[in-house]
Design a protein around this nucleic acid. Structure first.
Lengths: 341, 341
DNA sequence: GAGTAGACTGACATCGTTGACAGGGATGCT
DNA sequence: AGCATCCCTGTCAACGATGTCAGTCTACTC
């Protein structure tokens, strides 16, 4: 039913191998032959069979996106970015949600890698920071690109796409300080995420830069969830005096804080400013909309996918390159100067 | 490096074919041989290669999930549900976001079907209701399961997983009526979605059942987005008298209405009740949390995936079966009796 | 005791593609 | 003229599984 390479070859009057050469853009095919083959391809609506291709070739035409992240907006953006590049370059994308704490995550990923003959994997936080996983994949000879928070040293092995959380977090904190806030609560994300630590450092560094002392009671650890943001915000409200601003390590936490404020009748932003991080669509759908910082996750993912696929093609011209993305401050209605007391 | 069926066969001292039989749970293999093979499989960590399998067999071991839906929570739930079944049954899942209005969606899907040798496709609204797509896939002999809103006739061809939007929408409207509301605004979702029409019918039928006249001015068409919910809610607020309740055809619309209410200083639920539909996690993260109706989308998707894979296996024992899911009413803080005027 | 059916196993071709290698014609160099 | 080199093309085996078919070995029936 579906046309195969053989059909194309017959129609074009060449050998199957020559069709393969044309399709794969190999060198040394005469222009004349090329055109004839392409015409036949067109006519038959031929499309290479990914399974057969992957079977014979060392490389298959599939990459996998690995994530463990509760934020659907983030995940969807990742997927869209990666898919766009895959479509363009004729690859398939597999998605693999997983649990960062699963029994044998490393083994599982290695199995997947083999079983599906992956060309490569895109690792996202926190899996991209899991030393055990990285080692196992490295030993298996897997082709990996990691998305992760930039660390001051940037000394990671392999190909990485960095996000400068520290910088953006500094910018958000500075924004609050410049509005006149000095008592700024900070709600952590999962401490095991490197990005959480970077975001906290950005906060602390900004305070220091403006000679504001970091108060222990204003900084609460927890996780990246809405619920935990809600809980911890309420905890901050018991302080006397209350903080005049809260900076949540992601938009979900900030949204939780927003609802917490509402729940005790606090007016945002006049009685309390709230800022988030990531700039989900979500952040635009609260009232008031959230001040936050973000970078199109889609771009980050598509960059990672492109890097990965290029590496697959073994073009030695591209040395293992990295890239740094800088999220940008987005000021919306949830922050304003503190009310005078 | 990775073990193949041949390696397993050698170790177990049987033919490759026998290993294939054991792995695929075919009948007529002696228990003794089975055990020996399984031990060898275990020892070598053998996993069947999906590409090779798909190449030889008519069926491949991949299904695809097709969607065009702006709601990441919904999509993620679909994905999780489908993936769970795929993992269990040894299939791969491809995801394929698309645009329902794309130039040649039907052709694109058929191409994909062939190119990746899919075992089948799960179609979600609104693609699952696109006659042109259905016909093209049918002609290509594609194996399809559709997720879609139940219609009164239920006369769809092929395998379907139905969601009873009408029933749930009736329940929500009834809930509002029983609280004492009579002027209830209704904000449509995209009219081309069958579910939108079903939800509106549920609303209208409930009003009729309680002898409340449907007022044209209270019913506004639009799409499923937050922004459009916001816009249309503001439009409703210009009416005199204002509606005392708004029912949005999904949670996003309802959230938009919530923010709209806030923006003109209306207190929810006391001055205005708001209800949504779908029960996203999202609906719990507003203030107040939304009254809504929902059914675990994950279950719907996993049911669809299971149906699809079973059909692949050509077990004639299962006639093309369908299933009806009934979303349930979830009452939260965004609805209450109307204030007395 | 022959025939038949049922349980179990293996040999071999095959899916659609790519990789290794060989071959042939044109061109350039000695 | 002879040889090497550069283009261009084709032949053949292989990837790792499954499907077809033919076989063997037991047990049961008549």
């Amino acid at each position: 039913m579906t046309a195969t390479m053989n059909d194309v070859a017959k129609l074009a009057g060449v050998s199957q191998k020559t069709v393969s050469r044309v399709v794969n853009r190999e060198a040394w095919v005469s222009e004349q032959t090329r055109q004839r083959v392409l015409k036949a391809v067109e006519k038959l609506g031929y499309q290479p069979d990914l399974a057969a291709r992957g079977l014979r070739g060392a490389r298959a035409y599939v990459i996998s996106l690995i994530y463990d992240n509760p934020n659907p907006y983030y995940i969807q953006a990742l997927q869209e970015g990666a898919l766009q590049v895959c479509d363009e370059l004729g690859f398939d994308l597999h998605i693999h949600p997983c649990h960062a704490h699963a029994q044998d995550l490393a083994g599982d990923l290695v199995n997947r890698y083999r079983r599906s003959r992956l060309s490569g994997m895109i690792l996202t936080p926190p899996v991209s920071e899991n030393a055990q996983v990285l080692q196992a994949l490295d030993e298996a000879g897997a082709n990996v690109v990691r998305i992760l928070s930039a660390s001051p040293e940037m000394s990671d092995d392999g190909m990485c796409v960095y996000v400068d959380d520290h910088h953006a977090s500094y910018a958000i904190t500075e924004h609050l300080i410049l509005l006149g806030h000095t008592r700024i609560g900070f709600l952590w994300g999962d401490a095991e995420h490197r990005s959480s630590r970077a975001r906290h450092r950005g906060y602390a560094d900004a305070l220091r830069a403006y000679s504001i002392k970091e108060e222990e009671a204003l900084v609460l650890r927890g996780d990246f969830s809405f619920e935990d943001g809600f809980r911890r915000a309420r905890q901050l409200f018991t302080l006397d005096p209350r903080p005049t601003a809260i900076f949540g390590a992601n938009d979900e936490i900030a949204a939780g804080a927003l609802v917490a404020a509402r729940s005790i009748g606090l007016d945002v932003p006049h009685e309390l400013s709230i800022a988030g991080f990531e700039d989900n669509p979500f952040a635009r759908q609260t009232w008031p909309p959230l001040t936050t910082a973000g970078q199109a996750t889609e771009n980050i993912a598509s960059h990672a996918a492109r890097l990965l696929i290029e590496q697959t093609r073994e073009r030695p011209s591209h040395p293992a390159s990295t890239k740094l993305f800088r999220p940008e401050l987005v000021v919306r209605g949830s922050t304003s100067p503190p009310a005078r007391r």
